[in-house]
Design a protein around this nucleic acid. Structure first.
Lengths: 235, 235
DNA sequence: AGCAGATTTTAACGATCGTTAAAATCTGCT
DNA sequence: AGCAGATTTTAACGATCGTTAAAATCTGCT
């Protein structure tokens, strides 16, 4: 079997077409885009190469021409969506340091939700593949799913000046991520039990209200270093 | 195909054997037990009848004799583990009303963790099957998974006298459940990113600390009806 | 002992899966 | 025009899936 030409080093540009550069969409990109959608709907083992082929409107063996195995494709997809998320996440912090905890947190959530509405796949893919059997082999791209939390924690630490102790910051970011992944990545479930539609303004409003209700006090504690002592100090 | 004898109405007791009643374990129970384990490790579509047969040490078509379809078996499993959880959850509240929010919450979590250590399947099965594709058919037992949150909310409301408004209680229980399902039902993931072992004392200590760190202030607010005003009041 | 029904085993079905091989077609260059 | 290599299509593979049918075995009763 011939291997596909690596079109990185020898960039054979299309003669600067008027339509957007992204418009010139080679097959490989079509496959990635379709795979992102399918893997956002089905966990790794339930998603199939044939589903992706159908979604991309190509014959499914063509996928193996660009990605030798299903595992390779999934890794590429996880890399794609988590990188996208990682880059966006950095921008959500811009200017927040001037705002104080409450309005800063509020604006951060707004930016976050705005991204999630446009790119729902990242959180869904993480949510779908986060739970793993203890005794069995890992899913191919699982290392990247695992890094997801660590990345956001670092971005948070770098962006916001904090006096809180490291443990508190870790507890905060893990809980924020967990709630975000569930409420946005599994919105069908949570909206369902609330009697709302997953993408509706009402539901997103509830999620924001809930995340601020639950996490704002702890955020204040971390940022300003106050010890409000909710009865947690042990000594 | 013959249908299995319903051994509910005509209880053909074994002649009160010395060994425990549960010891007399007909095939049906062996299948349920094996299915609980397999469905706690693999999401619905990834788990197979053959895995369950192997785990129960029976030939796999025998499963179809007791459960006509995989869907029927899964529903039975979800019913089994959520009922078990529901019954246990009620007992965890016993005596808490005398204790005040902090020590009460602490004791509740201890009881909860104790149960989760002995019966890890319920939370794992919920965690594994909670995320659903938006456009496609539901998993067979999904209605019961969905009811899971509603049940615990009602138990909480009945057990603890509260002055908090309904919205606050809903935000609290949903967030508690979400964190509990993730931290205990997907412990492999979270323990992994913390560098701890999923079932270790250290990890469980971290989870408890985190849940109290995040949720105790809100619990106090709900129970005693105080309005501590973390900057959330809007009017 | 012999029967009837319950239970278990064995074999096989059609469907779907990821992957491979080979043929067919397209593309850019001489 | 004709070639070489890249890309796409077609057909098929072995493996696994849930389910069914039929035979084999077990169980309790007369």
């Amino acid at each position: 079997m011939a291997t596909p030409k690596k079109n990185k080093s020898n960039k054979t540009k299309p003669p600067h077409s008027k339509t957007s550069e992204r418009q010139k969409k080679p097959t490989r990109n079509k496959i990635i885009d379709a795979a992102v959608k399918v893997f956002a709907d089905y966990p790794y083992y339930a998603a199939s190469i044939r589903m992706i082929g159908k979604s991309a409107k190509i014959d499914h063996p063509l996928i193996n021409y660009y990605f030798p195995t299903k595992a390779t494709l999934f890794e590429e997809v996880v890399k794609h969506v988590t990188d996208e998320y990682y880059q966006a996440n950095i921008t959500w912090f811009e200017g927040l340091e001037k705002l104080g905890p409450e309005s800063g947190f509020s604006l951060y959530i707004d930016r976050f939700f705005n991204f999630a509405a446009k790119h729902p796949s990242a959180l869904r893919i993480v949510a779908l593949n986060l739970v793993q059997a203890e005794e069995h082999d890992e899913i191919p791209g699982y290392e990247r799913v695992r890094n997801f939390f660590e990345q956001t924690k670092q971005t948070f630490k770098n962006a916001i000046p904090m006096q809180g102790i490291a443990d508190d910051i870790e507890m905060f970011t893990h809980s924020f991520n967990t709630l975000a992944i569930n409420y946005l990545g599994a919105s069908t479930y949570y909206a369902g039990i609330l009697g709302l539609k997953p993408g509706s303004r009402q539901y997103l409003k509830w999620v924001k209200k809930t995340m601020m209700f639950v996490l704002l006090p702890q955020l204040k504690q971390i940022i300003i270093g106050e010890n409000m002592d909710y009865g947690l100090t042990q000594k």
